[in-house]
Design a protein around this nucleic acid. Structure first.
Lengths: 200, 200, 200, 200
DNA sequence: GATGAATGAGCATTCATTCAT
DNA sequence: TATGAATGAATGCTCATTCAT
């Protein structure tokens, strides 16, 4: 009588829960949002939800990874085709858009959580290492091409630039300035000046 | 004979509560830390604590302002004496030290809280406006002197640089890299390259 | 298979809570009885109770209405069949029985609460208007028949008689005189003399 | 150096506390009003207040007696001079005025408290016995004179009439009808008809 | 697989009362 | 006498999680 577990259904349900949780966490933060709210948002009973995620912490972990991972996909292509600044701008633009969409507080929550919680930090470090690796690659390519100052340490520069993207996004969310294009312009100017070789 | 209400005592108690709350919030975050923990940390009964702060939210607000305001004092002097980069470095150094001291998650919490809560945001905007004003001044002075590129918009540049400080601090906390001098070196290089006039 | 929310269960639980609350409120009053006591009396956890009533105030409101409404049912029949005094006596008897059963203080609490709280007052006014309407009808019928003095204003008389019932009940509870039949005799004598046409 | 306790001061302070407590209890009820509120209303520190009353319960007891006693003074004179109805009307008028002044809920609280608390009840019974005695006297005088039906039991009648006064006052407070003269008219009509001998 | 009622420890907050000054 | 800061148990209420159906 019993059918085997349908893995597609499980994936669908997990996605449904994550989306609901993201919506709730945006509005209220990880620790203020309740499981009941998430259940309601996901149109799902508590029992059903707990079949897919064993605890609130697990959902938080899943979302942190999820948010961090999204950016990754587009990087590689862009990095080869254009300059380092153009590739980074693509990432930055995407990131700023999230802030414009109301993800600012959630991203800050993820920072807080990953600073405090080693398990989450570890998961995010892996994702971050990959993104950084692409960026380092792009910077090295730029240095080879001559658009990027050869005196810069590629890894250090990659981290500084990611930090700048995050900082600009956060600060603009704090200041209620939500135009992602303005944020991007700020970032491009910073990146350009930071990366350019002297006497350009 | 009647003893009059002692305003010094009130100040001392408030400080005591804030310090205890900061310790708890660092470890556990605003919404996970309990009032009982704060009371214990402050060696104070719940009743005593509530004489000085009417609610947990009020403590959160007070700490947010407190943390934000700390940096301010030193800025003005530094800005007149040295270059814009040197003045900013002073602020940055101080900020990075907080991360090294374990304030990273708390600062992220403050970002999250101020993005979500308009009342807290408003209070912080005032404090931030003052800091930014000093920085803008320093940049203008640098432009007059010729160490700062005249093509930069001072206000925009000030915000970008603050954003960079915050981003670098957060990212390093996330990566468990706690050396504030390394962070400062990263920031100085970024600021130098960003602010310098071309053909230097 | 999914079980649908059972509305009967909800009704049962609500009744169970109300009964427990009435028992507690009788003994200790609205504001001295604790939710824990009510939970214990209802053999229910706090969480379960709060699924059915959102707050203590809501329970107080529900009980106030409940107590007030109980009398209503029997009136109409009685009013048609017998004299106004007989119909009123039925209500009075029922009311005095409540005092004999220990409801006196609770009824006084309901008065206090409804005098102070407009929301509760409003709800009770509706219920009261219905009871009064039946009584007015009975008095008018009596006037038509000739057992009731035609000089009396029916509405005014109805309110005076209800007031007398309440006053007698309260005063007897205060005096620890709990015999409902003695109370009823007092009331009948008063009502008879008050309503009778002169020269009878 | 130390002066002996000044008994006048003590009386003044006690009065001050009682007045403040009455004001608070009116607004919020015995068990919802806090000692802090009473202290503030009395412009007195908690320590000072507790020198004069050992507990909140003691204040409640004192107020209950106080409220009940107020009526007493005027009765005796009136009872001798006019008819029983006139004497009772004086008391009733005074009582209805209290309701008009906002004492309704407090009076209901006193009923509740005295029904539940034997100590308070006992104290009030004494005061009540005195008032009732005066009323009984007035009724007997009326019976002797012939304005009061000789078939009525004087004690029973006195209690019924007091009950009616209380019931009318309470019910009007509940209905938000605050005109004391209208209440008095209701009562006079009731008392007149209740007390009058037949064939008048 | 899914439901949603139930749990109960835990939470922020209050308040009658005390006591050092 | 008077003050008012302090106490801390108790309050109304919440919520992550479980489990019988």
């Amino acid at each position: 009588m019993a059918r085997l577990a349908d893995p597609e259904l499980a994936d669908r349900r997990r996605r449904q829960i994550l989306d609901a949780a993201i919506a709730c966490f945006r509005r209220r933060g990880f620790h203020q949002a309740t499981m009941q709210e998430i259940c309601a948002e996901a149109s799902m009973s508590a029992g059903a939800l707990y079949r897919y995620y064993a605890s609130k912490a697990e959902i938080i972990g899943a979302i942190a990874e999820d948010k961090h991972a999204e950016t990754d996909v587009m990087f590689l292509d862009a990095a080869r085709k254009g300059s380092a600044v153009d590739a980074l701008s693509l990432v930055a633009r995407d990131f700023f858009q999230k802030f414009a969409d109301g993800d600012g507080a959630l991203i800050a929550d993820i920072f807080a959580e990953s600073i405090r919680d080693d398990a989450i930090a570890e998961a995010l470090h892996k994702i971050n290492a990959r993104s950084t690796a692409y960026c380092i690659e792009a910077i090295k390519t730029g240095q080879a091409r001559g658009d990027v100052d050869r005196n810069l340490d590629p890894k250090q520069a990659a981290n500084v630039l990611f930090a700048a993207i995050e900082g600009i996004g956060l600060r603009r969310a704090f200041l209620r300035e939500s135009d992602p294009d303005a944020a991007l312009a700020d970032f491009r100017e910073l990146a350009q000046r930071y990366l350019s070789p002297p006497h350009e």
